[in-house]
Write a protein that binds this DNA or RNA. Structure first.
Lengths: 334, 334
DNA sequence: AAGATTCATTTGACCGGTAAACAAGACCTG
DNA sequence: CAGGTCTTGTTTACCGGTCAAATGAATCTT
């Protein structure tokens, strides 16, 4: 590996002068700079980022922890984070936890050892406890798309999940639905369910626990099986709420497979509004979660915290959610 | 930040002894080790990985460059790479290029500056040129899911894309299809098309350029539009080949929207066989690409190269592809 | 009991940069 | 022309670890 010293010798200057040319932090006389640049080109010198990191105490790298990237929701978040980082010359260290608490803990420990300048944790309940283990309170961390109780002392960019669930319920209620089932990943999506129930409670309607179905896996297949169980439990139900899009895809199929039409016989409403759901048949109505926006804001927040040297302000920032009404919901069959 | 020196003072030993305890490389007397460990716990010491990297010349980090993560194919690759890395205590630096050559070049430059110990590049044609710029020929790089001409001098784990396309064509031919259209992302998926055509050529059938439709975007929406165009161009076609799953999803919808049935009127065959396509209606027949396996092998290959200190052997490793026949293909309508 | 081994710890150099204080000459300025 | 300011580049120290060789004490030989 060719080092700065090699370049310096070749250009007949000191290491430091080379450093000045490379970083541009200190002025260097044009002809000297040219000599140095020539030497750099000749030798094919590339600064060693690790050495620079050690000297400056900053790695130009941010860590991101997500439960998985194999879901449209989180892959959108990853993309957006990487986008923002790239614009600022930062690199991304990605960790996925796969609903494995130990793994999550390990990741956290690894990243906090000054390998990254900041850490963004997206929607992973497994990490609530380990967060307390963090040695340095000044280390910038932020949470994104956080759903369960928000640890105070950490900034969060998320939405009001309960309200989002409420929006879904309100929509179904306004269409006259009374007998509905909910396919909900529990306990992760508890709040979405609470919101849904609240909307029905306003009209003195209850969604009993017997009409809540937890899928065995967070995939369309899981949603499919859960919806089938729901239809068996109450053949007369007129709507099914799915606590996230992937489940909704399966629900849609299960309803159709049972010979019922969507939305004629049964309305289906999803949650997240990721890209693929606009293309189902019928197109899925869903509560839209601004995933990219959340990711972008959380990332910017951390970048700001890094340059300012201060830990990010401990604030919860709630983004707006909205309902995207497409073709999978309609008036309740009488 | 508490350093090794701080721990050393507290435990009444030298920095080096602390290092020995932490790394376990050199034996330390049990009671001293205990004292050191106590000091570590008291002070909450965490080794500075950057400093360690500088000293050892190894970062325990691997770079991965993919075109995007917002596609089931690449997100599977990312997941699998991260899996393998995690098992070996490595971290993942993720870069996405978004079909942006400049960005790709920038990423490559950044990563090659000793920030990562090895680099895995998955299916990105934009990076063929910049690869030549790499300063150190001993730097471990491998390609994965590489489709276009394979740069010699670099190890590759991929499949025979032409053969995979051939499998699709053979299947359609065996079902009696003669008039077919291809929805192909070009020039990226040129080889898949070549293989498809080869299968038809065996029976003296040609798929003319007028029956090849390039989508404007690599999404279901793109596939939808392209398939619609195909059906307009030849209303009597009996099968459509899609060069990747996302397109196939759109193709499926377009065919159904036109009032035709799948596979009764038109067969649809996809490419990649990512998780979501097993759940379409009808379930999609597709050429299966072993994405996870490719990722796993390529990653292992690089990890081996790192520990052996030698650049990975320059070998092209071709994994087997297979056809997964589901319900979207059937005998050609007469 | 003196020399040879072993084990545990320490010493000093080094990884490849950056930061800040410092020196030397050119340029003002009164 | 003495003294101060600007430029430009050099010196010295440091970031926080690891490595290999050196030291010292304890144990084993014979």
């Amino acid at each position: 590996m060719v080092t700065m010293q090699d370049v310096a010798v070749r250009a007949g200057v000191t290491k430091q002068t080379v450093s000045n040319v490379v970083t541009g932090r200190v002025a260097v006389r044009p002809d000297t700079a040219a000599r140095v640049r020539a030497a750099i080109a000749d030798l094919g010198y590339k600064p060693n980022l690790v050495a620079r990191s050690l000297a400056t105490g900053t790695t130009m790298t941010m860590g991101l922890i997500v439960p998985t990237v194999a879901s449209p929701f989180y892959s959108e978040i990853v993309e957006e984070v990487e986008n923002v980082l790239d614009q600022h010359g930062y690199h991304l260290v990605l960790c996925t936890t796969r609903a494995d608490g130990d793994r999550a803990k390990r990741q956290l420990a690894g990243l906090s050892s000054r390998l990254v300048d900041a850490l963004l944790i997206a929607g992973d309940r497994d990490l609530t406890d380990p967060l307390a283990l963090l040695p340095d309170p000044r280390f910038p961390i932020a949470l994104c798309a956080w759903e369960t109780q928000i640890p105070d002392s950490l900034p969060v960019v998320t939405i009001d999940y309960e309200h989002a669930g409420f929006l879904a319920g309100k929509h179904l209620r306004s269409l006259g639905h009374k007998r509905v089932a909910a396919v909900v990943e529990l306990p992760t999506h508890e709040r979405r369910l609470t919101g849904l129930r609240a909307a029905f409670a306003r009209h003195r309607l209850r969604i009993g626990d017997d009409m809540v179905f937890a899928p065995t896996e967070a995939t369309p297949a899981g949603g499919f099986a859960a919806a089938r169980a729901a239809l068996a439990a109450d053949p007369l139900l007129t709507a099914i709420f799915a606590s996230h899009d992937l489940l909704a895809l399966g629900v849609l199929e299960a309803v159709k497979e049972s010979g019922r039409s969507v939305p004629g016989d049964v309305s289906v409403i999803g949650f997240d509004d990721t890209a693929p759901v606009a293309l189902t048949h019928p197109a899925l109505t869903a509560v839209a979660i601004p995933a990219r926006e959340m990711a972008q804001q959380a990332t910017s927040l951390l970048l700001r915290a890094i340059v300012e040297g201060a830990p990010p302000v401990n604030s919860a920032q709630l983004l707006r959610t909205s309902l995207v009404i497409r073709d999978s919901t309609g008036p309740a069959r009488q």
